[in-house]
Design a binder for these strands. Structure first.
Length: 570
DNA sequence: CCCCCCCC
């Protein structure tokens, strides 16, 4: 049903001539200073005459709704989704002197979110529609997809587009469940530019005062910001202009929930994500005092809650000072140690001038304002001491018992959600259940420096360590959803093959390796394991590979019990 | 803030 059909309908129902209808359409277009086209005008004309034009609007749905994730720049598209955020209508003066208006909002479908920009009164008046509300479903017909300044996609709703509230013929599988973003909290290490609106919970570690600044055009502006951390990481949140009011009751050390934030990539480090408050942002204080300054937390407790804290303990292991090159080109020093108290132990990295070269194993120390968060490579909680913290000697004695070895350090609570192999789609830490499905035919050996584990040729140690054998084992892993290539480096390969690298190297030299691997493969293939490790995209394979950090053979009875427990819960 | 190592 196009314009012609709607005209026919008006002619029939209202006994108007084509001429009269044309005049009404022209008048509408004139009233909107030409901002709407014929098709837009006739909808208004029909509406004013009390004629149901839903069918007409539907007809504007020229093709089926697209998934947000499939949108490409410069494409005209229709999408359907749930409203997850609505801004205010902004008005401005156009170059030609006429008044323009803009209403930004965010839609979410099952594939993702997109920022929508409704232009001019014809579209922005949708704000007065009772069905244009948070969590409602709307369709955008014939929107124009554009790349925004920050690189993400936006859909522009102009004179040739429509916003349909309560749309018909919606494919319900495209509609995500209501995302109560006030209660759904995103861990800081999972901030993503793709989550266009999100909420966080954490402790305010630094509150920067509101600052006034002068823009290039001479006008004044203001900005406030804060640093916030949770057990997974740390980020910065900026408040612009009037939003600065939001922090007037906030203090450092409080635990807060902050909702409806918009992620932005950090202007200096594009790999980092900062947050910006929106007009819909709300801050709720969850805990008045987290006693960041004074209380010394047990290592066990810090491992659990993360964030900033003070740790007292005894040095179990301490590494050499290492000069390293940062990604931004600067160079700095770091030193790693393992610190233990009666409740547990933690890896601590000391940075730059916080390093005290006199510290040695068995010294007691007190570290203040260490940041404890998940290390994205090991997926374990680690502490880091940088500019904000301090380190001092302590008189306290600890009854630790036998010194534990790094290898036997308790793995973290499985904070990682177990995924399917087919879901592995970014450089991230994953855990999945799977089996080895291909015979292990080869092992790669190399001679490495014992200090840095690098191949001798690649070692950059000031004083090279001993030359040691290391090995690489490649596996094909499968979980029925998909397969992935997995790599085990020396330690894990030794655990899997239950043999030392040196012995395996000897087997190779004696021509026994083939036989050994054949038997091992027979033993291993088909067994179920839980693998976890960091996924990395391989150009070579044009697919993700997983660098296995940990694995364990699955106790099938225990797993069965888990499944039964889950079923019982349901 | 490093973050390996190295094969295909």
């Amino acid at each position: 049903m196009g314009i012609e059909n709607t005209i026919q309908k008006i002619m029939e129902e209202k006994k108007l001539s084509r001429e009269e209808i044309k005049n009404l359409i022209d008048k509408q277009i004139e009233d909107f200073s030409g901002l709407i086209d014929e098709e837009g005008a006739i909808v208004i004309v029909a509406k004013e005459l009390g004629i149901d034009v839903k069918a007409h609007q539907e007809s504007a749905k020229m093709e089926s709704d697209q998934l947000i994730t499939n949108l490409k720049p410069r494409m005209n598209a229709s999408i359907v989704g749930r409203i997850v955020e609505i801004s205010e209508v902004k008005t401005f003066n156009k170059k030609d002197g006429s008044k323009g208006s803009l209403l930004p909002f965010i839609l979410e479908d099952t594939s993702g979110m997109i920022r929508c920009l409704a232009w001019d009164d014809f579209n922005t008046q949708i704000i007065t529609d009772n069905n244009f509300r948070l969590n409602e479903i709307v369709r955008i017909v014939n929107g124009f997809v554009k790349q925004s300044q920050v690189g993400s996609l936006e859909i522009h709703i102009g004179s040739k587009s429509r916003i349909q509230t309560q749309p018909d013929e919606v494919d319900r599988t495209l509609i995500p469940a209501i995302n109560h973003s006030e209660t759904k909290i995103t861990p800081i290490n999972q901030l993503s530019l793709k989550k266009l609106t999100l909420s966080i919970e954490g402790v305010i570690t630094t509150l920067y005062p509101t600052k006034k600044f002068t823009r290039k055009n001479g006008t004044e502006g203001k900005r406030a910001s804060l640093q916030i951390s949770d057990s997974t990481g740390l980020t910065y949140l900026t408040f612009w202009g009037d939003h600065c009011e939001m922090i007037k009751d906030i203090k450092e050390d409080q635990k807060v929930r902050i909702t409806k934030l918009s992620p932005k990539s950090n202007y200096r480090d594009k790999t980092k994500i900062d947050l910006t408050a929106t007009s819909n942002t709300k801050i709720t204080i969850i805990e008045e005092e987290t006693h960041l300054e004074n209380s010394i937390k047990s290592i066990e407790n810090l491992l659990e809650i993360g964030g900033f804290g003070n740790i007292e303990g005894i040095i179990q292991e301490i590494g050499d000072q290492k000069s390293i090159q940062l990604k931004n080109g600067e160079s700095t020093k770091l030193q790693k140690m393992v610190l233990a108290d009666e409740t547990g132990e933690i890896i601590v990295t000391i940075w730059g001038d916080k390093i005290n070269p006199d510290l040695k194993v068995d010294d007691s120390i007190l570290i203040k304002k260490a940041l404890v968060k998940i290390n994205s490579y090991s997926n374990e909680m680690e502490a880091s001491l940088s500019t904000r913290g301090s380190i001092e000697r302590s008189e306290k004695t600890f009854n630790i018992g036998e010194r534990s070895k790094t290898l036997e350090r308790t793995p973290p609570n499985s904070t990682t959600e177990r995924k399917k192999i087919e879901d592995i789609n970014q450089d991230d830490f994953y855990e999945f259940k799977g089996s080895i499905i291909q015979e292990i035919k080869r092992i790669f050996f190399y001679i490495a420096c014992s200090k840095c584990n690098r191949k001798i040729d690649n070692c950059k140690c000031d004083q090279q360590g001993d030359h040691v054998n290391r090995m690489i084992l490649n596996l094909i892993l499968d979980d029925e959803s998909s397969t992935i290539r997995g790599t085990m480096m020396t330690k894990n390969a030794e655990l899997l093959l239950n043999e030392s690298t040196d012995n395996i190297k000897k087997m190779e030299e004696n021509g026994e390796l083939e036989e050994f691997l054949k038997n091992k493969s027979l033993e291993l293939i088909g067994k179920e394991f839980i693998f976890s490790g960091k996924a990395k995209f391989s150009e070579y394979n044009d697919n993700y590979e997983i660098n296995i950090a940990r694995f364990k053979e699955l106790d099938s009875e225990l797993e069965a019990q888990n499944i039964i427990d889950i079923l019982d819960d349901i």
